[in-house]
C-alpha cells in the first residue's frame, strides 16, 4: 500500500541497501579467505541451541517428572545441573551459585535483580528488557501482587509472595508449579511448556 509518510520510503530503501551491503560484506570476507560459508552459521548456531532458556526448561521438566531429582535441584542447583548433559561451562561463569525456589499452592516466588549482571543466563537465556529496569524492581518489592496481576498472574490472597533479590553471589530462579492435565507428558513435552517468564516467577505455566 502506498504511504505518504516521508519516513516510509527512506525506511524501505535503507532496508534494501542494508541487506545488499551485508551480502556484499559477506562475499568480500569470503573472497579474502577471512570467513567461510559456515563461520557465521556456526556462531549463530551457538545462540540458537545453547544460549537460551532450554536448559532451565529441561531442569524444570526433569524435576516435575522425578521427585528425587527435584529434591536435589532445590538443595543444590549447580550440582543437579551437572547431572544433565549440558554444554561445558554451563554451571560456571554467569551461572555460578544458582539457587532455585519452588512455587507451591501456598507460596509464589518472583526474582528481581539489583545489579546488572546477576541474571541466571545459563538456565533462562537472555534477560528481557524490563528485568533491569529499576522501576520494575522497586515495584516488585513494594507491590508484588499488583505487578504480578499486570503480568496476568492473579494470586489468591492466601498465597504468600516471596521476592528474591539476585546478586553476584546468588542468582535465583523459580521452579514453577506443574500445570494440571500434563500427567501423560514426556519430559520434552513438559519442557516445551516452559517460558523464561515462568522461571522468573512473572508467569504461570499453561498447557
Amino acid at each position: 500500500m502506498p504511504s505518504n509518510y516521508p519516513g516510509f520510503k527512506y525506511g524501505t530503501d535503507r532496508e534494501a541497501v542494508s541487506a545488499a551491503k551485508v551480502k556484499a560484506l559477506e562475499s568480500l570476507l569470503i573472497e579474502k579467505g577471512i570467513i567461510t560459508g559456515d563461520t557465521v552459521n556456526n556462531i549463530l548456531g551457538y545462540f540458537e541451541t545453547e544460549m537460551g532458556p532450554f536448559n532451565g526448561a529441561k531442569l524444570v521438566a526433569r524435576a516435575w517428572a522425578d521427585p528425587d531429582f527435584k529434591a536435589r535441584l532445590l538443595a543444590d542447583c549447580n550440582a543437579a545441573c551437572e547431572e544433565l548433559d549440558f554444554p561445558q561451562g554451563m554451571s560456571g561463569a554467569e551461572g555460578e551459585h544458582m539457587r532455585i525456589v519452588e512455587n507451591t499452592p501456598e507460596v509464589h516466588n518472583i526474582i528481581v535483580c539489583t545489579l546488572c549482571s546477576c541474571y541466571p543466563w545459563p538456565t533462562l537465556g537472555l534477560p528481557p528488557y524490563w528485568f533491569k529496569d529499576p522501576t520494575f524492581r522497586a515495584r516488585v518489592v513494594r507491590e508484588p501482587r499488583k505487578v504480578l496481576s499486570e503480568f496476568g498472574v492473579e494470586l489468591d490472597d492466601s498465597v504468600e509472595v516471596r521476592v528474591w533479590d539476585s546478586s553476584a553471589q546468588i542468582r535465583w530462579w523459580v521452579l514453577p508449579m506443574r500445570p494440571e492435565g500434563t500427567d501423560g507428558m514426556s519430559e520434552a513435552e513438559l519442557a516445551a511448556l516452559l517460558t523464561p517468564e515462568a522461571m522468573m516467577g512473572v508467569a504461570t505455566v499453561e498447557v
Binding site: V22, K23, V40, L44, F47, M51, G52, G125, P196
Partner: peptide, 13 residues
C-alpha cells in the same frame, strides 16, 4: 523469550 531476536536475515549475518 530468552533468545536474541532478529527481524531480518541480514541482522543475523
Amino acid at each position: 523469550d530468552g533468545h536474541l531476536h532478529f527481524d531480518r536475515d541480514w541482522e543475523k549475518m
